[in-house]
Nucleic acid binder design. Structure first.
Lengths: 179, 179
DNA sequence: GTCTATAGTGGGATAGAC
DNA sequence: GTCTATCCCACTATAGAC
């Protein structure tokens, strides 16, 4: 299942797009089957003729989020500073989808094969090896989530924190990267 | 309000300790007013003679979490590697409390004054300036949350990712730290 | 494919008697 | 400070008629 707008006459795609809309503006808790149905002009139980359960919807949104974030990174160019900016910008532009896609457990079996790897590829290319790439990904994720949830203290210079993260990971590690 | 065990005859402290216990073993969703009351041997409505609402309980647990994490960092010694290890160990030892204390919005007005600053002090000392300290804190937070929620791919070397983070932040930045 | 009706579950919180 | 009785809310999901 996906949320392709081109097939919006399909009830499934319609529900998915609507869910995305509600998610973006009000968060996942606001996405209920009753509300989806109401806004589609049908009764809630009728949704279950099209969707197996609510989790199917969630999975589709998570996949869309990971995919879009990956596209943003692929479009950003190879240097770490640009990747960080792209990552941050995408996360802040749709904070609820970012949270949904990156928090909590992930049922990899229900996601498209290779989706995560493809999204992470630009970071791997920029950092040189898996371990540094994972550390940098985690750093970006930490900064993004803390910024989204307003966890930095009121006067904090968040731009500078992102810049410090980029600086830290730009320096080559002591031992040369694996051949 | 706090969760001091020494005053466990107090209903408030009793509820708080019990909540902590349930949180640690089953997560925040398992902490319900009904269940707390049941395990205390009273009826749910009676809880509201002692607690204003459920959020009061949550705030106390969040404060306890931040405080304990801070203690772990203060006990760890000054070097970044040791701090990272202490951070990771504490987070993994009580993942549910860690999540509760670090995810979602934080109502600073209801937290003890200076609690966060005190907890963050060791990182500030180790990193030299606020921006690097915030970046490193975010990196540790990202690694911890991703590890707790099982977000790293099955074969990932998580130890190595933590080590790469420490290495990245150990190098001094290009410009000398502010005098 | 839609409807009505409803099951089943869970939650937070309040009123008022004792 | 405890109780009983309840209210309110919300949700996912199913059964069966049309």
């Amino acid at each position: 299942m996906d949320c392709d707008p081109s097939m919006a006459e399909d009830r499934v795609a319609q529900a998915c797009l609507l869910a995305r809309q509600i998610l973006d503006t009000e968060g996942w808790d606001a996405v209920t089957m009753r509300r989806l149905a109401a806004e589609m002009g049908i009764q809630a139980p009728s949704l279950y003729k099209h969707l197996r359960d609510k989790d199917q919807l969630k999975t589709a949104l998570v996949a869309a989020g990971i995919g879009e974030l990956g596209e943003a990174l692929h479009a950003a160019g190879p240097d770490l500073a640009g990747l960080a900016t792209a990552y941050r910008r995408w996360a802040l532009a749709q904070p609820h989808l970012y949270d949904l896609a990156t928090s909590g457990t992930l049922d990899r079996a229900r996601l498209p094969e290779g989706l995560e790897d493809h999204a992470a590829q630009p970071l791997l290319d920029a950092l040189g090896d898996q371990d540094r790439a994972r550390a940098a990904w985690a750093a970006a994720h930490g900064l993004a989530t803390l910024e989204i949830s307003g966890r930095f203290p009121p006067g904090a210079d968040i731009d500078a924190a992102w810049a410090a993260m980029v600086t830290a990971f730009e320096a080559r590690p002591r031992r040369s990267r694996r051949a």
